[in-house]
Simulated scan of single mutants.
Amino acid sequence: MIRSLHAFRFIFALMVFMSHLNYIIPSENKFWSFLYRYIFREGYIGVSFFFMLSGYILAYRYTDAIIEKSFSFKTFFSRRLARILPMYYVGLLVALPLSYSELIYGNTLFYIKKMMSTIFMVQSVIPVSDYYFSFNGVSWSISTELFFYIGFPLITAVLIKQRFIKRTLIAVTTLIIILAILLIGYENAYYWLYISPVLRIADFTMGIGLFLLIKGRSFQLSIDEATKWEYRALLVFLLFLILQPYVHANFKLGVYYWIPIGIIISVFSNVQGKITMFLSKPVWEMLGHISFSFYLLHHSYIKYYQHYMMPNIDPKWTGIVILIIILISILTSYVTYRFIEEPARKYIRGRFS
C-alpha cells in the first residue's frame, strides 16, 4: 500500500511549486492575488508532508531490523545519501548562474562561505536566511532532512521501547505549541519553526510514531468503505486549508497541518479505495518517482523566468507561463531521474553499501 503514496509526493511537490509563484504572479491582478493568498501560498506545507512521510516510510522499512538488532547504520546512511546527493548537487549546479553577479560584484568571501555551507549540506543549522536560502532556495529542506537521518535509529529505538507512544507524541506536540506561542513576535521565529532541524525533527518523529501506532493493525475494508475513508481524509485536509486564514503563522509552520497530513498518510497507505486505485496508475507512479527532481529544479526555473523574461512578458500570459514552467519542470525531472538520479543512486549504493 505504501506505493499508493507516490502520487502524493508529486501532488505536494506541486503545492510547493505553487507556493513559489509569488515571484512571478502580478500583484496588481486581483484574480491571481486571490489564488495565491488563499490557495497557493499554503503550498509550503508540502515540506511538512515530505518530513512526516519520510519518518513514516523509514520506520516502515527499518523498524523490524531495529527490533531484531540487524540494523546497519552504515548501510542505512549510505542508501539515504545515494537517494539525495545526486539531485541535490544537480539542483545546485542549475541554480548557480543565478548568483553570478553576486560572485563578481558582491562580497566574495561571504559567497564562498555560503557555498561551503551548501556543499556540505549544513546551511539549515545557520539561522540566517542568506545562508539557508542561498543558491537553490529549496535545498535547505534536504540539509534539514540529513539531520533526521542521523537521528532516525535513536528516535525509532526510543519510540519502540516507549510503551506510551501516544503520550510521547502528545508531549512533542505540546512542546511545539508552547514554543510557537513563546516565539510570537520574535523576528527569527520563521527559522526556528520552519527551517531548523532542531524543531522540524518533530515532523519526522510524528511520521515514525504514526507508523508505530498503526503497525500490525488490520484494515480490511471493502472498496466502497475504503473510498469513503479516502474522501474523509481529503475533506479533513480541505477543511484545514479553509480555516488556515484564521490561524497564526507560527502554528501553520508547525503543528497545524500535522493532523490532516497524518490522516492522509495513514489512510492512503492502509486502505485501497477508488481514489487509491486511480492514484496507483503508472502515470502517477512515475510522477511520484520524479517528484524529488521536480522539487529540486522548479525553484530555479521560476527564478530564471523572474530575472530574465518576466519584464518583457505581458501579465495576461501568467497562466500560460505557469503551465509552461510546470511542463519544463516535469520533462527535465524525468530526464534527470532516468539518466542521473537513478543511475547515480544505484552506483553509490553498489559502491558503498
Rank of each mutant, 00 (worst) to 15 (best):
M15E: 05
H20F: 08
E187P: 07
F50K: 08
L327V: 15
I326Q: 08
I181P: 00
A95S: 13
L179H: 01
E102P: 00
P97C: 08
G273E: 04
A344L: 13
I165C: 09
V122N: 00
F31A: 05
I208C: 08
E230W: 09
R345L: 04
Q244H: 13
S4L: 09
R345Y: 03
I2W: 11
A180R: 03
T205C: 12
W284F: 15
Y36K: 12
P245R: 07
F147L: 12
L243S: 06
I259R: 03
I264H: 05
G185E: 02
A13Y: 02
L238D: 01
I57V: 15
S143A: 15
Y304K: 00
I165T: 14
F34N: 06
S124C: 02
F10H: 10
A7D: 06
I150E: 02
I181H: 04
Y62A: 10
T205K: 02
I325P: 07
I84F: 03
A59E: 09
G43M: 12
I150W: 02
Y186H: 12
T336G: 05
I57Y: 07
I214K: 06
H248W: 08
S48V: 06
S99K: 00
S101H: 10
K161C: 01
P86F: 04
F135Y: 13
L323Y: 02
V198H: 01
N312T: 11
D64E: 15
I155Y: 03
L21G: 04
A13N: 07
L175T: 13
I25Q: 03
F294D: 03
Y186L: 07
